[in-house]
Simulated scan of single mutants.
Amino acid sequence: MTMQQEIDDPRLLAWAYLSKVVQGPCAPLTELIEKVGPQEAARAVRERDLSEYLGERTVARAHVDSAVEDLRALSEMGGRLVTPDDDEWPRWRMLAFDGLGHSRADGPPLALWVVGSRSLGELTERSISVVGTRAASGYGEHVTAEIAGDLALDGWTIVSGAAFGIDGAAHRAALGVGGLTIAVLACGVDRAYPAGHARLLRQISQNGLVVSEYPPGTTPAKHRFLARNRLVAALSDGVVVVEAGWRSGARNTATWGRRMSRPVMAVPGPVTSASSAGCNRMIREGEARLVARAVDVVEEAGPIGLADTEDDTVARDTDSLDGNALLVHEALPTRGFRSVPEVSVESGVPIAIVRSMLAQLELDGFAVPCQDGWMRSR
C-alpha cells in the first residue's frame, strides 16, 4: 500500500485517530471496536455516543484528529500502523491479555506503530525478552552479550526496551551476530529515547523492528514505561532479567511475564552488588528461575526437547561444518560481501578450494552469492 493509499484508507485513519485519542491500552474501546469496527467506533468517539466510562476516557483528546499527519510521518520513516485486523498482527501473543482483567493498564495495545521492514508476527514467533538495569556493571553487560548473542545466533529474536544498560547491550549483541531484535518504546517511534541511542534505534529499524503503541509525537512518561513493560513481556516466549534492583522497571516486566504465564528467568550476581539485588531475591523467593547461559534460557522457554541440557552450547546448524568448509564459512561476512580472493586470504584456504567450498555451502544453505562476491546466509 502506498503512502497516499494509507492516508486515504478510512479504516486505517480510524485506527490512527483512536490510537491518538486513548494513547495506550483501553479495554472498553477495544471491546467496542470488536463489536462495531474501527470506523463506527471512531464516529462514536467524535460524536460522544459512548458509555460513561469510555466517554470520560476519551473526552480529553476526542477533538484531536492528526491521523493524516501521523500516518504520513510514519510512512516517511519507512513504518506502518499494524492493527488487530492485519495479517501481521501477533494474535497468539496478544491472547496473553485475555486473562488479565479489564483495568485501564491490563488491556492489549489498540494498535502498534512499527518501523522496519520485517513482519512483527514472524519476528515474535520465537522471541525472548532480555531486560535489566540502566546502571549495568561490566559483569552484567558481559553476561547479557553472551546470552542475547547466543540466542540471536540460534534464531531467537531479542526483545527489549532500548534503554541504557542491559537493554542496549541486549540489542547490540543481537545486531552484532547478524540476528534480529525488537525495541519497544514508551514514546512515539519518531523520537529517539534515550537520545544517546538514536544510532542504535536506526540500526534496529534496519535489521529488526522499532515498535510503540503510541502515535508519533508522543513523549516519554513514567506511566508509559510501565505500560511498555507489559508489551515487552507479551511479545516473547519468556523474560530474562540481568541485573535489576528490587524496585525497578525490569522487575515490573518480570511481574508482567508471570501474570501472562511466561517463564521468568534471572541471572544471579554478586551478593555485594546492588545491581543484582533484585535478581538474587527473585531467585531466592521463587519468582524466577536461575539461568547463566543461553541453553538455560532455551530449556526454560523453548519448546520441549529443543534444548540439550547435556551440551554446553546452543545447537546450531553450522555445527555440521568442519575443516575447510568451516574456515570458509567463518570468513564470510553477515553484512556486505567478500570476493573469492578476499575469502581465501581471510580463511587461509587456497582459492581453488574456496570456490569448491562456496558452491557446497550454497547448496547446503550456508552461503549466498552476490553480484560482486559472497556473504553468509541468514
Results as ranks from 00 to 15, higher is better:
Leu201Glu: 13
Leu201Arg: 15
Arg202Tyr: 01
Ile204Ala: 03
Ile204Gln: 04
Ser205Cys: 07
Ser205Asn: 08
Asn207Ile: 01
Val211Trp: 04
Pro216Tyr: 12
Pro220Trp: 15
Pro220Gln: 14
Phe225Cys: 10
Phe225Leu: 13
Arg228Asn: 09
Leu231Met: 14
Leu231Thr: 04
Val232Pro: 01
Ala234Asp: 04
Ala234Ile: 03
Leu235Tyr: 00
Asp237Met: 07
Gly238Thr: 03
Val239Phe: 10
Val239Met: 09
Val239His: 05
Val241Tyr: 13
Glu243Ser: 01
Gly245Asn: 03
Trp246Pro: 00
Asn252Ala: 07
Ala254Lys: 07
Trp256Glu: 09
Gly257Pro: 04
Gly257Tyr: 12
Pro263Asn: 12
Ala266Cys: 10
Val267Leu: 11
Gly269Lys: 09
Gly269Ser: 10
Pro270Phe: 12
Thr272Ile: 04
Ser273Leu: 09
Ser273Thr: 09
Ser275Trp: 09
Ser275Leu: 13
Gly278Thr: 10
Met282Ala: 14
Ile283Phe: 07
Ile283Pro: 02
Ile283Gly: 03
Arg284Thr: 11
Glu285Arg: 08
Glu287Val: 00
Ala288Ser: 08
Ala288Asp: 08
Arg289Ser: 13
Leu290Gly: 01
Ala292Ser: 15
Val295Pro: 00
Asp296Trp: 07
Asp296Ser: 02
Val297His: 06
Glu300Thr: 02
Glu300Ser: 12
Gly302His: 11
Gly302Tyr: 11
